[in-house]
Write a protein that binds this DNA or RNA. Structure first.
Lengths: 240, 240
DNA sequence: CTAGTGTCGTGACGCCGGTCACATACACCT
DNA sequence: AGGTGTATGTGACCGGCGTCACGACACTAG
Protein backbone atom coordinates (compact mmCIF):
# COMPACT_ATOMS: atom_id res chain seq x y z
CA UNK A 1 0.00 0.00 0.00
CA UNK A 2 1.09 3.55 -0.63
CA UNK A 3 2.11 5.83 2.20
CA UNK A 4 0.13 8.99 1.66
CA UNK A 5 1.18 12.08 3.60
CA UNK A 6 4.32 10.29 4.73
CA UNK A 7 2.48 7.84 6.95
CA UNK A 8 3.34 4.23 7.58
CA UNK A 9 -0.09 2.71 7.22
CA UNK A 10 -1.16 0.05 9.69
CA UNK A 11 -2.94 -2.31 7.39
CA UNK A 12 -4.88 -4.61 9.70
CA UNK A 13 -6.12 -4.23 13.25
CA UNK A 14 -5.39 -7.92 13.82
CA UNK A 15 -1.66 -7.43 13.39
CA UNK A 16 -1.46 -3.92 14.83
CA UNK A 17 1.34 -3.81 17.39
CA UNK A 18 -0.09 -0.90 19.33
CA UNK A 19 -3.39 -2.59 19.97
CA UNK A 20 -2.85 -3.31 23.64
CA UNK A 21 -1.89 0.32 24.30
CA UNK A 22 -5.12 1.58 22.82
CA UNK A 23 -8.05 1.27 25.16
CA UNK A 24 -10.70 0.65 22.58
CA UNK A 25 -8.74 -1.67 20.27
CA UNK A 26 -7.96 -4.37 22.83
CA UNK A 27 -10.79 -6.69 21.79
CA UNK A 28 -11.15 -10.47 21.50
CA UNK A 29 -10.19 -11.86 18.09
CA UNK A 30 -13.74 -12.58 16.94
CA UNK A 31 -14.85 -9.02 17.55
CA UNK A 32 -11.67 -7.68 16.01
CA UNK A 33 -12.27 -9.75 12.90
CA UNK A 34 -15.79 -8.39 12.59
CA UNK A 35 -14.47 -4.86 13.09
CA UNK A 36 -11.88 -5.48 10.42
CA UNK A 37 -14.66 -6.20 7.94
CA UNK A 38 -16.58 -2.98 8.45
CA UNK A 39 -13.78 -0.48 8.90
CA UNK A 40 -12.26 1.71 6.22
CA UNK A 41 -8.59 2.51 6.77
CA UNK A 42 -8.06 6.10 5.67
CA UNK A 43 -5.33 8.71 5.85
CA UNK A 44 -5.63 12.47 6.20
CA UNK A 45 -3.13 15.27 5.71
CA UNK A 46 -2.45 17.94 8.28
CA UNK A 47 -5.35 20.37 8.93
CA UNK A 48 -8.01 18.06 7.49
CA UNK A 49 -11.48 18.21 8.97
CA UNK A 50 -12.92 14.83 10.00
CA UNK A 51 -16.30 16.19 10.97
CA UNK A 52 -17.92 19.44 11.92
CA UNK A 53 -20.02 20.31 14.93
CA UNK A 54 -23.71 20.17 14.01
CA UNK A 55 -23.39 17.54 11.26
CA UNK A 56 -25.55 14.44 11.42
CA UNK A 57 -23.34 11.56 12.59
CA UNK A 58 -21.90 9.54 9.70
CA UNK A 59 -19.96 7.17 11.94
CA UNK A 60 -16.95 6.81 14.19
CA UNK A 61 -13.29 7.60 13.59
CA UNK A 62 -10.73 5.49 15.43
CA UNK A 63 -7.54 7.46 15.59
CA UNK A 64 -4.53 5.19 14.91
CA UNK A 65 -1.76 7.72 14.31
CA UNK A 66 -1.37 11.46 14.65
CA UNK A 67 -3.14 14.06 16.75
CA UNK A 68 -6.57 15.61 16.26
CA UNK A 69 -7.83 18.91 17.62
CA UNK A 70 -11.33 18.77 19.10
CA UNK A 71 -13.08 22.10 19.38
CA UNK A 72 -16.40 23.83 19.64
CA UNK A 73 -17.04 27.20 18.17
CA UNK A 74 -19.47 30.05 18.59
CA UNK A 75 -21.41 31.87 15.88
CA UNK A 76 -18.97 34.77 16.06
CA UNK A 77 -16.02 32.52 15.28
CA UNK A 78 -14.67 32.36 18.81
CA UNK A 79 -13.27 28.88 19.31
CA UNK A 80 -12.66 26.69 22.33
CA UNK A 81 -10.32 23.71 22.06
CA UNK A 82 -11.58 20.88 24.27
CA UNK A 83 -8.68 18.57 23.87
CA UNK A 84 -6.03 17.20 21.58
CA UNK A 85 -6.92 13.58 20.85
CA UNK A 86 -4.16 10.98 20.84
CA UNK A 87 -3.95 7.61 19.04
CA UNK A 88 -6.37 5.01 20.40
CA UNK A 89 -9.17 7.47 20.92
CA UNK A 90 -12.52 7.02 19.19
CA UNK A 91 -13.89 10.25 17.76
CA UNK A 92 -17.54 11.00 17.07
CA UNK A 93 -18.52 8.14 19.34
CA UNK A 94 -21.20 9.78 21.43
CA UNK A 95 -22.95 11.32 18.45
CA UNK A 96 -22.87 8.03 16.57
CA UNK A 97 -24.37 6.16 19.52
CA UNK A 98 -27.07 8.69 20.33
CA UNK A 99 -27.86 9.70 16.76
CA UNK A 100 -27.65 13.38 17.64
CA UNK A 101 -25.41 15.78 15.74
CA UNK A 102 -21.66 15.76 16.35
CA UNK A 103 -21.17 18.05 19.33
CA UNK A 104 -17.75 19.25 18.29
CA UNK A 105 -15.38 19.68 15.36
CA UNK A 106 -12.43 17.35 14.72
CA UNK A 107 -9.46 18.62 12.74
CA UNK A 108 -6.11 16.89 12.24
CA UNK A 109 -2.96 18.58 13.50
CA UNK A 110 -0.53 16.04 12.07
CA UNK A 111 -0.94 13.68 9.14
CA UNK A 112 -3.24 11.03 10.60
CA UNK A 113 -4.30 7.46 10.05
CA UNK A 114 -7.89 6.81 10.90
CA UNK A 115 -10.23 3.83 10.79
CA UNK A 116 -13.68 4.95 9.81
CA UNK A 117 -16.81 2.87 10.45
CA UNK A 118 -20.23 3.78 9.12
CA UNK A 119 -22.92 4.37 11.71
CA UNK A 120 -25.24 1.50 10.71
CA UNK A 121 -22.35 -0.93 10.53
CA UNK A 122 -21.06 0.19 13.89
CA UNK A 123 -24.42 -0.07 15.65
CA UNK A 124 -24.93 -3.56 14.26
CA UNK A 125 -21.42 -4.47 15.35
CA UNK A 126 -22.22 -3.29 18.89
CA UNK A 127 -25.41 -5.34 19.07
CA UNK A 128 -23.50 -8.45 18.07
CA UNK A 129 -20.38 -7.99 20.18
CA UNK A 130 -21.11 -7.13 23.77
CA UNK A 131 -17.40 -6.87 24.62
CA UNK A 132 -17.13 -4.03 22.16
CA UNK A 133 -20.27 -2.46 23.60
CA UNK A 134 -18.65 -2.41 27.01
CA UNK A 135 -15.50 -0.84 25.57
CA UNK A 136 -17.69 1.85 24.10
CA UNK A 137 -19.17 2.52 27.53
CA UNK A 138 -15.65 2.80 28.92
CA UNK A 139 -14.58 5.20 26.20
CA UNK A 140 -17.64 7.33 26.77
CA UNK A 141 -16.95 7.42 30.51
CA UNK A 142 -13.47 8.60 29.74
CA UNK A 143 -14.79 11.33 27.49
CA UNK A 144 -17.33 12.40 30.08
CA UNK A 145 -14.59 12.58 32.65
CA UNK A 146 -12.55 14.81 30.39
CA UNK A 147 -15.49 17.07 29.81
CA UNK A 148 -16.01 17.38 33.55
CA UNK A 149 -12.41 18.43 34.01
CA UNK A 150 -12.88 21.04 31.33
CA UNK A 151 -16.01 22.31 33.04
CA UNK A 152 -14.17 22.54 36.34
CA UNK A 153 -11.29 24.42 34.79
CA UNK A 154 -13.54 26.85 32.94
CA UNK A 155 -16.17 27.32 35.60
CA UNK A 156 -14.29 27.29 38.86
CA UNK A 157 -11.12 29.19 38.06
CA UNK A 158 -10.66 32.69 39.31
CA UNK A 159 -8.16 33.88 36.76
CA UNK A 160 -6.54 33.10 33.45
CA UNK A 161 -3.23 32.51 35.24
CA UNK A 162 -4.81 29.71 37.23
CA UNK A 163 -6.08 28.00 34.10
CA UNK A 164 -2.77 28.30 32.30
CA UNK A 165 -0.89 26.89 35.29
CA UNK A 166 -3.31 23.96 35.43
CA UNK A 167 -2.81 23.30 31.73
CA UNK A 168 0.97 23.32 32.00
CA UNK A 169 0.93 20.94 34.96
CA UNK A 170 -1.44 18.64 33.12
CA UNK A 171 0.82 18.59 30.07
CA UNK A 172 3.91 17.89 32.10
CA UNK A 173 2.15 14.99 33.82
CA UNK A 174 1.37 13.38 30.47
CA UNK A 175 4.94 13.31 29.24
CA UNK A 176 6.16 11.20 32.13
CA UNK A 177 8.21 14.26 33.02
CA UNK A 178 6.13 15.11 36.03
CA UNK A 179 8.35 13.18 38.46
CA UNK A 180 11.38 15.23 37.55
CA UNK A 181 12.50 18.24 39.47
CA UNK A 182 12.30 20.48 36.44
CA UNK A 183 9.94 18.93 33.90
CA UNK A 184 10.29 19.87 30.26
CA UNK A 185 7.57 19.98 27.67
CA UNK A 186 7.34 20.85 24.02
CA UNK A 187 4.99 23.67 23.19
CA UNK A 188 3.39 22.24 20.08
CA UNK A 189 0.69 24.88 20.06
CA UNK A 190 0.72 28.59 19.34
CA UNK A 191 -0.26 31.13 21.97
CA UNK A 192 -3.48 31.59 20.06
CA UNK A 193 -4.33 27.91 20.43
CA UNK A 194 -3.36 27.82 24.08
CA UNK A 195 -5.67 30.78 24.58
CA UNK A 196 -8.46 28.81 22.93
CA UNK A 197 -7.79 25.91 25.27
CA UNK A 198 -8.27 27.97 28.41
CA UNK A 199 -10.90 30.34 27.06
CA UNK A 200 -8.95 33.55 27.07
CA UNK A 201 -7.29 35.89 24.58
CA UNK A 202 -3.98 35.46 22.81
CA UNK A 203 -2.52 38.60 24.37
CA UNK A 204 -3.31 37.38 27.86
CA UNK A 205 -1.41 34.16 27.21
CA UNK A 206 1.69 36.02 26.01
CA UNK A 207 1.52 38.34 29.00
CA UNK A 208 1.14 35.42 31.40
CA UNK A 209 4.14 33.64 29.91
CA UNK A 210 6.18 36.82 30.11
CA UNK A 211 5.20 37.22 33.74
CA UNK A 212 6.06 33.63 34.62
CA UNK A 213 9.44 33.97 32.94
CA UNK A 214 10.16 37.16 34.84
CA UNK A 215 9.29 35.38 38.09
CA UNK A 216 11.60 32.47 37.20
CA UNK A 217 8.74 29.96 37.24
CA UNK A 218 9.31 28.79 33.70
CA UNK A 219 12.02 29.22 31.10
CA UNK A 220 11.83 28.87 27.33
CA UNK A 221 14.44 27.01 25.29
CA UNK A 222 13.34 27.31 21.72
CA UNK A 223 10.01 25.54 21.53
CA UNK A 224 10.55 23.56 24.75
CA UNK A 225 9.46 24.94 28.05
CA UNK A 226 11.26 24.13 31.30
CA UNK A 227 9.33 24.35 34.52
CA UNK A 228 11.87 25.74 36.95
CA UNK A 229 9.64 26.20 39.97
CA UNK A 230 6.99 23.54 40.10
CA UNK A 231 5.85 24.56 43.58
CA UNK A 232 5.13 28.12 42.50
CA UNK A 233 3.26 26.83 39.48
CA UNK A 234 1.10 24.63 41.69
CA UNK A 235 0.33 27.59 43.91
CA UNK A 236 -0.79 29.50 40.83
CA UNK A 237 -2.94 26.54 39.77
CA UNK A 238 -4.63 25.93 43.10
CA UNK A 239 -5.00 29.30 44.59
CA UNK A 240 -6.93 32.26 43.23
CA UNK B 1 -44.46 -0.82 52.40
CA UNK B 2 -44.12 2.39 54.32
CA UNK B 3 -43.96 5.70 52.56
CA UNK B 4 -40.97 7.48 54.01
CA UNK B 5 -40.62 11.20 53.39
CA UNK B 6 -44.13 11.29 51.93
CA UNK B 7 -43.20 9.29 48.85
CA UNK B 8 -45.34 6.77 47.04
CA UNK B 9 -42.78 4.01 46.63
CA UNK B 10 -42.64 2.21 43.30
CA UNK B 11 -42.09 -1.31 44.50
CA UNK B 12 -41.02 -3.19 41.38
CA UNK B 13 -39.48 -2.08 38.11
CA UNK B 14 -41.54 -4.73 36.32
CA UNK B 15 -44.81 -3.05 37.19
CA UNK B 16 -43.54 0.53 37.10
CA UNK B 17 -45.87 2.62 34.96
CA UNK B 18 -43.31 5.23 34.08
CA UNK B 19 -40.87 2.75 32.64
CA UNK B 20 -41.38 3.62 29.00
CA UNK B 21 -40.80 7.31 29.74
CA UNK B 22 -37.44 6.65 31.31
CA UNK B 23 -34.69 6.09 28.79
CA UNK B 24 -32.68 3.62 30.78
CA UNK B 25 -35.54 1.60 32.27
CA UNK B 26 -37.10 0.50 28.99
CA UNK B 27 -35.48 -2.94 28.92
CA UNK B 28 -36.65 -6.40 27.82
CA UNK B 29 -38.31 -8.41 30.57
CA UNK B 30 -35.42 -10.80 31.12
CA UNK B 31 -32.97 -7.98 31.76
CA UNK B 32 -35.49 -6.17 33.91
CA UNK B 33 -35.98 -9.27 36.02
CA UNK B 34 -32.24 -9.56 36.54
CA UNK B 35 -32.04 -5.88 37.40
CA UNK B 36 -34.86 -6.35 39.88
CA UNK B 37 -32.76 -8.91 41.72
CA UNK B 38 -29.71 -6.73 42.23
CA UNK B 39 -31.28 -3.34 42.90
CA UNK B 40 -32.03 -1.84 46.28
CA UNK B 41 -35.06 0.43 46.32
CA UNK B 42 -34.24 3.31 48.64
CA UNK B 43 -35.72 6.64 49.60
CA UNK B 44 -33.98 9.86 50.57
CA UNK B 45 -35.25 13.04 52.21
CA UNK B 46 -34.64 16.48 50.82
CA UNK B 47 -31.01 17.66 50.85
CA UNK B 48 -29.55 14.18 51.19
CA UNK B 49 -26.19 13.49 49.59
CA UNK B 50 -26.08 10.42 47.35
CA UNK B 51 -22.36 10.61 46.69
CA UNK B 52 -19.55 13.10 46.83
CA UNK B 53 -17.04 14.09 44.19
CA UNK B 54 -13.79 12.23 44.72
CA UNK B 55 -15.29 9.13 46.37
CA UNK B 56 -14.50 5.72 44.96
CA UNK B 57 -17.56 4.53 43.00
CA UNK B 58 -19.88 2.35 45.10
CA UNK B 59 -22.40 1.86 42.32
CA UNK B 60 -25.16 3.50 40.31
CA UNK B 61 -28.25 5.38 41.43
CA UNK B 62 -31.29 5.21 39.16
CA UNK B 63 -33.47 8.18 39.93
CA UNK B 64 -37.15 7.17 39.99
CA UNK B 65 -38.78 10.17 41.64
CA UNK B 66 -37.67 13.61 42.68
CA UNK B 67 -34.88 15.89 41.49
CA UNK B 68 -31.16 15.72 42.24
CA UNK B 69 -28.63 18.53 42.06
CA UNK B 70 -25.35 17.59 40.36
CA UNK B 71 -22.45 19.87 41.15
CA UNK B 72 -18.69 20.15 41.28
CA UNK B 73 -16.91 22.27 43.79
CA UNK B 74 -13.55 23.92 44.22
CA UNK B 75 -11.27 23.77 47.25
CA UNK B 76 -12.38 27.24 48.31
CA UNK B 77 -16.03 26.18 48.44
CA UNK B 78 -17.07 27.82 45.20
CA UNK B 79 -19.67 25.55 43.60
CA UNK B 80 -20.84 24.98 40.06
CA UNK B 81 -24.14 23.25 39.41
CA UNK B 82 -23.91 21.14 36.27
CA UNK B 83 -27.50 20.13 36.03
CA UNK B 84 -30.64 19.17 37.88
CA UNK B 85 -31.27 15.47 37.22
CA UNK B 86 -34.83 14.33 36.52
CA UNK B 87 -36.42 10.91 37.02
CA UNK B 88 -35.10 8.24 34.66
CA UNK B 89 -31.55 9.44 34.83
CA UNK B 90 -28.77 7.16 36.05
CA UNK B 91 -26.37 8.88 38.43
CA UNK B 92 -22.79 7.86 39.07
CA UNK B 93 -22.81 5.87 35.88
CA UNK B 94 -19.57 6.96 34.30
CA UNK B 95 -17.56 6.55 37.51
CA UNK B 96 -19.06 3.12 38.08
CA UNK B 97 -18.20 1.99 34.56
CA UNK B 98 -14.67 3.40 34.51
CA UNK B 99 -13.83 2.69 38.14
CA UNK B 100 -12.51 6.21 38.64
CA UNK B 101 -13.79 8.45 41.42
CA UNK B 102 -17.20 10.10 41.12
CA UNK B 103 -16.54 13.27 39.20
CA UNK B 104 -19.31 15.25 40.84
CA UNK B 105 -21.55 15.49 43.88
CA UNK B 106 -25.21 14.42 43.87
CA UNK B 107 -27.60 15.95 46.37
CA UNK B 108 -31.39 15.58 46.47
CA UNK B 109 -33.55 18.68 46.12
CA UNK B 110 -36.87 16.93 46.75
CA UNK B 111 -37.61 13.74 48.61
CA UNK B 112 -36.42 11.10 46.16
CA UNK B 113 -36.85 7.46 45.33
CA UNK B 114 -33.72 5.83 44.04
CA UNK B 115 -32.74 2.36 42.93
CA UNK B 116 -29.21 1.63 43.99
CA UNK B 117 -27.09 -1.11 42.42
CA UNK B 118 -23.68 -2.11 43.75
CA UNK B 119 -20.79 -1.74 41.33
CA UNK B 120 -19.83 -5.45 41.08
CA UNK B 121 -23.45 -6.46 40.60
CA UNK B 122 -23.95 -3.82 37.96
CA UNK B 123 -20.84 -4.71 35.98
CA UNK B 124 -21.82 -8.36 36.00
CA UNK B 125 -25.32 -7.40 34.91
CA UNK B 126 -23.88 -5.45 31.98
CA UNK B 127 -21.72 -8.35 30.84
CA UNK B 128 -24.76 -10.63 30.82
CA UNK B 129 -27.29 -8.28 29.24
CA UNK B 130 -26.02 -6.57 26.15
CA UNK B 131 -29.27 -4.62 25.73
CA UNK B 132 -28.59 -2.95 29.04
CA UNK B 133 -25.00 -2.31 28.03
CA UNK B 134 -26.22 -0.46 24.97
CA UNK B 135 -28.61 1.59 27.12
CA UNK B 136 -25.66 2.53 29.27
CA UNK B 137 -23.78 3.72 26.21
CA UNK B 138 -26.81 5.81 25.26
CA UNK B 139 -27.06 7.32 28.73
CA UNK B 140 -23.38 8.17 28.72
CA UNK B 141 -23.70 9.81 25.33
CA UNK B 142 -26.51 11.88 26.71
CA UNK B 143 -24.40 12.92 29.68
CA UNK B 144 -21.47 13.76 27.45
CA UNK B 145 -23.73 15.87 25.31
CA UNK B 146 -24.91 17.77 28.36
CA UNK B 147 -21.37 18.35 29.50
CA UNK B 148 -20.49 19.74 26.06
CA UNK B 149 -23.37 22.17 26.28
CA UNK B 150 -22.13 23.26 29.66
CA UNK B 151 -18.64 23.77 28.29
CA UNK B 152 -20.00 25.84 25.43
CA UNK B 153 -22.05 27.98 27.76
CA UNK B 154 -19.17 28.54 30.17
CA UNK B 155 -16.39 28.87 27.66
CA UNK B 156 -17.89 30.72 24.74
CA UNK B 157 -20.15 33.26 26.39
CA UNK B 158 -19.12 36.87 26.53
CA UNK B 159 -21.20 37.95 29.46
CA UNK B 160 -23.22 36.73 32.40
CA UNK B 161 -26.36 38.11 30.77
CA UNK B 162 -25.82 35.83 27.80
CA UNK B 163 -25.53 32.78 30.02
CA UNK B 164 -28.61 33.66 32.04
CA UNK B 165 -30.64 34.23 28.89
CA UNK B 166 -29.52 30.86 27.54
CA UNK B 167 -30.51 29.17 30.77
CA UNK B 168 -33.97 30.72 30.80
CA UNK B 169 -34.61 29.73 27.20
CA UNK B 170 -33.44 26.21 27.91
CA UNK B 171 -35.77 25.94 30.90
CA UNK B 172 -38.74 27.25 28.98
CA UNK B 173 -38.09 24.71 26.24
CA UNK B 174 -38.25 21.86 28.73
CA UNK B 175 -41.67 22.73 30.09
CA UNK B 176 -43.36 22.41 26.74
CA UNK B 177 -44.03 26.11 27.14
CA UNK B 178 -41.56 27.12 24.50
CA UNK B 179 -44.14 27.16 21.70
CA UNK B 180 -46.24 29.75 23.47
CA UNK B 181 -45.98 33.43 22.83
CA UNK B 182 -45.17 34.19 26.45
CA UNK B 183 -43.76 31.06 28.09
CA UNK B 184 -44.01 30.72 31.84
CA UNK B 185 -41.66 28.85 34.09
CA UNK B 186 -41.40 28.22 37.78
CA UNK B 187 -38.22 29.41 39.39
CA UNK B 188 -37.53 26.46 41.65
CA UNK B 189 -34.03 27.69 42.42
CA UNK B 190 -32.72 30.62 44.41
CA UNK B 191 -30.63 33.35 42.82
CA UNK B 192 -27.65 31.84 44.57
CA UNK B 193 -28.23 28.50 42.85
CA UNK B 194 -28.87 30.10 39.49
CA UNK B 195 -25.59 31.93 39.92
CA UNK B 196 -23.88 28.62 40.54
CA UNK B 197 -25.42 27.21 37.38
CA UNK B 198 -23.96 29.90 35.15
CA UNK B 199 -20.74 30.45 37.07
CA UNK B 200 -21.31 33.94 38.34
CA UNK B 201 -22.16 35.68 41.63
CA UNK B 202 -25.50 35.92 43.35
CA UNK B 203 -25.54 39.72 43.15
CA UNK B 204 -25.00 39.64 39.40
CA UNK B 205 -28.03 37.38 38.97
CA UNK B 206 -30.29 39.72 40.95
CA UNK B 207 -29.01 42.69 39.01
CA UNK B 208 -29.57 40.91 35.69
CA UNK B 209 -33.13 40.01 36.64
CA UNK B 210 -33.79 43.58 37.75
CA UNK B 211 -32.46 44.83 34.44
CA UNK B 212 -34.55 42.40 32.41
CA UNK B 213 -37.66 43.39 34.32
CA UNK B 214 -36.97 47.06 33.73
CA UNK B 215 -36.58 46.34 30.01
CA UNK B 216 -39.89 44.42 29.97
CA UNK B 217 -38.22 41.23 28.83
CA UNK B 218 -39.46 39.17 31.76
CA UNK B 219 -41.98 39.64 34.51
CA UNK B 220 -42.23 37.94 37.89
CA UNK B 221 -45.49 36.62 39.31
CA UNK B 222 -44.61 35.17 42.68
CA UNK B 223 -42.25 32.34 41.96
CA UNK B 224 -43.27 31.98 38.32
CA UNK B 225 -41.49 33.93 35.66
CA UNK B 226 -43.19 35.07 32.47
CA UNK B 227 -41.09 35.69 29.40
CA UNK B 228 -42.72 38.71 27.79
CA UNK B 229 -40.26 39.30 25.02
CA UNK B 230 -38.82 36.07 23.76
CA UNK B 231 -37.14 37.74 20.81
CA UNK B 232 -35.19 40.12 23.02
CA UNK B 233 -34.17 37.23 25.25
CA UNK B 234 -32.86 35.33 22.25
CA UNK B 235 -30.85 38.34 21.19
CA UNK B 236 -29.31 38.45 24.65
CA UNK B 237 -28.52 34.74 24.42
CA UNK B 238 -26.99 34.76 20.94
CA UNK B 239 -25.34 38.08 20.63
CA UNK B 240 -22.33 39.71 22.26
C1' DC C 1 15.96 41.94 -1.92
C1' DT C 2 11.31 42.93 -0.98
C1' DA C 3 6.66 42.02 -0.16
C1' DG C 4 3.45 39.18 2.27
C1' DT C 5 1.99 36.36 6.07
C1' DG C 6 1.91 34.28 10.66
C1' DT C 7 3.50 34.48 15.43
C1' DC C 8 4.99 36.98 19.37
C1' DG C 9 5.59 41.09 22.52
C1' DT C 10 3.75 45.23 24.77
C1' DG C 11 1.37 49.67 25.92
C1' DA C 12 -3.22 52.14 26.69
C1' DC C 13 -8.00 52.14 27.69
C1' DG C 14 -12.36 50.82 29.36
C1' DC C 15 -15.89 47.82 31.05
C1' DC C 16 -17.83 43.75 33.10
C1' DG C 17 -18.51 41.64 37.09
C1' DG C 18 -16.56 40.02 41.76
C1' DT C 19 -16.55 41.58 46.43
C1' DC C 20 -17.94 44.07 50.52
C1' DA C 21 -21.37 46.31 52.96
C1' DC C 22 -26.01 47.29 54.02
C1' DA C 23 -31.09 47.58 53.65
C1' DT C 24 -35.28 45.14 52.99
C1' DA C 25 -38.60 41.47 52.87
C1' DC C 26 -40.73 37.25 54.16
C1' DA C 27 -40.79 33.09 56.58
C1' DC C 28 -41.04 30.32 60.87
C1' DC C 29 -40.47 29.33 65.67
C1' DT C 30 -41.31 30.17 70.72
C1' DA D 1 -44.17 40.79 69.58
C1' DG D 2 -39.56 39.83 68.97
C1' DG D 3 -35.77 37.11 67.40
C1' DT D 4 -33.41 34.30 63.92
C1' DG D 5 -32.51 32.68 59.37
C1' DT D 6 -32.71 32.89 54.52
C1' DA D 7 -33.68 35.22 50.06
C1' DT D 8 -33.53 39.46 47.60
C1' DG D 9 -32.23 44.38 46.26
C1' DT D 10 -28.80 47.97 45.49
C1' DG D 11 -24.79 51.13 45.86
C1' DA D 12 -19.58 51.78 45.72
C1' DC D 13 -15.15 50.26 44.52
C1' DC D 14 -11.60 48.40 41.63
C1' DG D 15 -8.95 44.75 39.46
C1' DG D 16 -8.57 41.47 35.68
C1' DC D 17 -8.68 40.95 31.14
C1' DG D 18 -10.70 41.78 26.43
C1' DT D 19 -9.85 44.82 22.71
C1' DC D 20 -7.36 47.85 19.72
C1' DA D 21 -3.19 49.35 17.91
C1' DC D 22 1.31 48.92 16.77
C1' DG D 23 6.16 47.12 16.33
C1' DA D 24 9.57 43.21 15.98
C1' DC D 25 10.91 38.97 14.00
C1' DA D 26 10.95 34.76 11.23
C1' DC D 27 9.86 32.33 6.99
C1' DT D 28 8.32 31.78 2.24
C1' DA D 29 7.44 33.21 -2.42
C1' DG D 30 8.51 35.71 -6.31
Amino acid sequence: MLSPYGLDIIESCLTCKMRSDHIFCDLPTSALQAFENIKYATAYPKSAVLFVEGQAPRGIFVLCKGRVKLSICATDGKTLILKIAEPGEVLGLSATVSGKAYELTAETIDPCQVNFVKREDFLRFLKEHSDACFKVAEQLSEKYNNACHEVRSLGLSHSAAEKLAKLLLEWSSKNGESAKQEPRLKLALTHEEIAQMIGTSRETVTRLFADMKKRQIVQAKGSTLIIRNKAALKVLATNN
